[in-house]
């Protein structure tokens, strides 16, 4: 480029793109929107249309006659309410547990540790993401079982392992999803200028006050962002619950049993609307916190 360039030297198309933001936005948005807006949303829509269809039990083919039967079953049979409540409860507890564990770690990383330690800690916390989800779940199964590591550690305190069941499941899921909570909070806190903390201290605020009045408000949207991960990952899980959940089942199992074993896609689709509705409500609630931009 030289200083003597004039507008006439610009390639005309580039100039057009520069002058017309609308065209630029349109061209840039078309491929991702075709992919997500048409293909992905289309797939979801097709799934939910299927929920209104029936199934031929002998041949297993979907019969395209409209019926509300699947939703009627879903609403009138108690067990689906129980399973939904249990799943939401577990998702909420896992989320809270992860937030409580992740916050101090993220704060330490972002505002106390030296840059070198900071880097090492990020690596240390990302590494477990690479060990297979299944292998980690089975490792927890070994730890939670009778005579496993958990009861070894707990027995001197007069405690015992929670065994396989809801408690064990919550611990395992919280473990599996922890990195997804730590990273957004860490990123959020890193943006918080240290000068702000210093100002707070200079103005006489004690650590506790600084935490409450300065750090938490900044961390909150980040925590919410992390919670989208932990909440949705828990809502859709059906594998960990089979490994450490004892005789219990979650929404994911109900969907999986119907689509995988019974090949009843219409009913599975109807059950799948529950986690979708829950997640959409959740997203709508958290959108106001600005959390979605922290994902």
């Amino acid at each position: 480029m030289t200083a003597t360039s004039t507008a006439a030297d610009r390639p005309p198309r580039a100039g057009l793109l520069h002058r017309s933001p609308r065209l630029r936005v349109g061209l840039l948005l078309t491929p991702p929107m075709l992919w997500l807006g048409v293909a992905y949303l289309g797939a979801l829509a097709a799934l939910f249309i299927t929920a209104f269809w029936g199934q031929n039990s002998f041949t297993g083919t979907v019969e395209r006659t409209w019926t509300l039967g699947n939703f009627r079953d879903l609403l009138t049979i108690d067990v689906y309410r129980t399973v939904t409540a249990r799943t939401i409860g577990i998702a909420a507890l896992v989320t809270v547990l992860d937030a409580v564990i992740a916050f101090p770690v993220a704060l330490f990383m972002a505002k106390v540790a030296s840059p070198r330690t900071q880097r090492a800690l990020v690596v240390a916390l990302l590494m477990p993401l690479w060990a297979s989800y299944l292998v980690k779940a089975y490792a927890w199964r070994g730890m939670l079982g009778t005579g496993g590591l958990v009861s070894w550690v707990a027995s001197p305190f007069g405690l015992d392992t929670p065994g396989f069941g809801i408690t064990g499941l919550i611990i395992t899921l919280a473990y599996l999803w922890l990195p997804y909570m730590v990273l957004p909070i860490y990123a959020g806190l890193e943006r918080l200028p240290t000068s702000l903390l210093e100002a707070s201290a200079d103005l006489g605020a004690r650590s506790g006050t600084t935490l409450r009045r300065v750090v938490l408000p900044v961390a909150f949207p980040a925590i919410v962002a992390g919670s989208v991960f932990t909440f949705s990952l828990t809502m859709g899980d059906y594998i960990a619950v089979r490994i450490v959940g004892g005789p219990n089942q979650m929404l994911g199992n109900v969907v999986f049993d119907n689509v995988g074993a019974a090949n009843n896609l219409p009913f599975a689709a109807a059950v799948a609307t529950i986690p979708v509705v829950v997640m959409l409500v959740y997203l709508a609630l958290v959108r106001r916190t600005g959390a979605l931009e922290n994902l």
Partner: peptide, 9 residues
Amino acid sequence: LPIALPGIV
């Protein structure tokens, strides 16, 4: 949406 909706869906 694709990451916020449960994987099984």
